[in-house]
Amino acid sequence: MRMTPTVIIVGILALLAAITLTVVYWPYATRDITPSEIFRERSSIENTGRKIYLQNGCVYCHSQSIRSIDWGHGAERIAQSGDYIADEPIALGSQRTGVDLSQEGGEHPDDWHIAHFINPRYTRPSSIMPPFQWLAMERIETLTRYIQGLGLKDADRRMERQIYWKQEAIKAYEAGPEQNAKWLSEIVPEGWRNIPNPYPTTDASLHRGQKIYQNFCIGCHGPIGDGMGPAQPWIYPPPLNFTILKDRGISGGILYYQIMNGITGSAMPYFKRDLESQKIWEVGDYVAVYFINQSDANTEPRGIDAAWEP
């Protein structure tokens, strides 16, 4: 075959045209624009927030596409093409340096996000997300509106829940420590409230509990458990001061349940994805021993001792 300029130019253009028609134009022409069941239009403030998101390269660290093999953030909903029909550009992302955000709306209340944007290490001590304090409050709030809309109708349902429980949490907090502690216990299901921590306190378990506390809790509850971590100024009701729980009947079961499930409406996140059962008991016991100064570990009823107990 003799490669003349004509052969090259005509050949490559013909091939490119054929390929573009097949793998770009055809999928475009047959695209499915049926909205999925969670689809709704974004509000104008959410759209402005989305611009801030794109402008500042959040997309290089955050995907917005859940796969069937995912377990973490947003794994309740596998992405469908109908979720994206209003996205221009689409912001699927190709890296998960941070978590997937496609279902982030309502994961946390607004105050958590604000504190997190000011400095991610305030709410997530070992985060490597850079701080966004420099965006200034107005843009941070706009961005938060976009983030809270991620997941569209599902996000709206989660947000309603957050807003309702936020009011309840504020009411309880403003009624004073006594009332707040009572409310916090009452939102825990009856069965859990009466369970003491079934495992004994040991040096090793406290040591592990401390490590978990430092990696997960310290930014809010603070190094001495008084709720004065660096996130405190942005969070309302503020992170719990554990010392107020003394003599207020806080069982190991309550601590476990609250850490596992989080307190929807308050900034207190759930940790059941991050921490396995043993770790939750141990960080709970660490809080009980060091900050509340009162632990029911290994008291009755504790069932049969586990095989590993010393």
């Binding site: 770009v24 999928p27 475009y28 695209r31 624009i33 029909i85 209003a86 996205d87 699927l92």
Partner: peptide, 24 residues
């Protein structure tokens, strides 16, 4: 094509086709 140059304001298509043309 990839920069959707005929749409100066967003430089993108809508939805999934945008991802397809982008990665093409």
């Amino acid at each position: 094509l990839g920069n959707v140059i005929w749409k100066p304001d967003t430089g993108a298509l809508l939805g999934i086709p945008d991802a397809i043309v982008l990665w093409f």
